[in-house]
C-alpha cells in the first residue's frame, strides 16, 4: 500500500447525502476479477446517459472541478459492502473523501486501500463547500500526521479522528495482513480453546489427533 502523509489539492464537490455504493459503482460493473479499471465506471449512472454520453450536469464532467479530494454529503458510502466502491474512487484518482458522516464498511474498505475518509462536522463541511463553490481553485490541505483539514490560505481548519492503529498503517504503508500473519501462534492457541470449533469438530487439535 502507498504511504499517506499529506495532500494539498483542489476538490470536487458532490453535496448529496446518503450516496450509496450502488451509485458509486453499480452492480453490473462488478464482474471483473482484478482490482483495476473501476474508475472508468465511478458514478456511472450519474455520469453517463444510456447512450454512454457524459451528462453535462454531473460534477465529474464539469471541467471547472478537479483534484484529489472528493467532498460529499452526509452518510457517504452506505449500502452494499462492495470494496469496488473504494477501488473506483481511488482508481479515478481521489486520495481523500471528506464528508460529515461515513458508513462503517465503506470507511474500513477505504482505509484498507490507502484512501483516507475524513469525517468533519456538518458546519465545517458546509463552509468547505461554500469556499469551493465561491472559488473552484480553493485548495484543501489534509494532514494525516496532525489529523487536520485546512482551507489553504485561511485559518479555517478542523481536526478529524482516526484510529491510531490505522493511522500508523497508512503513514507506513502497512496492511493488516502483514500484522496478522505474525500472530499465527496466538491464533493457533486460540483455536485450541474455541467452544464453537470443538462443537462442530473443526477444532484443529482434534484433527491432528484423529
Amino acid at each position: 500500500m502507498e504511504k499517506f502523509v499529506k495532500i494539498t489539492s483542489t476538490a470536487v464537490p458532490l453535496p448529496i447525502e446518503d450516496i450509496d455504493t450502488d451509485q458509486i459503482i453499480p452492480a453490473r460493473f462488478l464482474k471483473a476479477t482484478t482490482r483495476d479499471g473501476f474508475g472508468d465506471n465511478l458514478f456511472r449512472d450519474w455520469r453517463y446517459d444510456n447512450q454512454n454520453s457524459p451528462k453535462a450536469d454531473f460534477v465529474l464532467n464539469n471541467p471547472n472541478y478537479s483534484g484529489q479530494i472528493l467532498v460529499a454529503g452526509k452518510n457517504f458510502g452506505c449500502g452494499s459492502s462492495r470494496e469496488h466502491a473504494a477501488w473506483a474512487i481511488a482508481d479515478y484518482g481521489f486520495k481523500v473523501v471528506i464528508s460529515s458522516f461515513f458508513a462503517d464498511i465503506f470507511k474500513g474498505n477505504a482505509l484498507n486501500n490507502g484512501l483516507l475518509p475524513v469525517q468533519v462536522s456538518d458546519a465545517f463541511l458546509a463552509v468547505v463547500l461554500e469556499h469551493i463553490f465561491a472559488d473552484r481553485n480553493t485548495q484543501l490541505e489534509v494532514d494525516l500526521e496532525t489529523q487536520t483539514v485546512t482551507i489553504a490560505g485561511t485559518a479555517i481548519s478542523e481536526k478529524f479522528e482516526i484510529n491510531q492503529y490505522k493511522k500508523t498503517c497508512l503513514i507506513n504503508g502497512y496492511d493488516d495482513i502483514d500484522y496478522l500473519l505474525a500472530l499465527r501462534d496466538k491464533i493457533e492457541a486460540y483455536e485450541k480453546t474455541s467452544k464453537y470449533l470443538s462443537l462442530v469438530g473443526l477444532n484443529q487439535e482434534q484433527e491432528i489427533e484423529a
Partner: peptide
Amino acid sequence: IGTSEVEQVMAT
C-alpha cells in the same frame, strides 16, 4: 466485510 478483509480472513 470488504474484499481486503476477505483476504485477511482467508490468510489468518
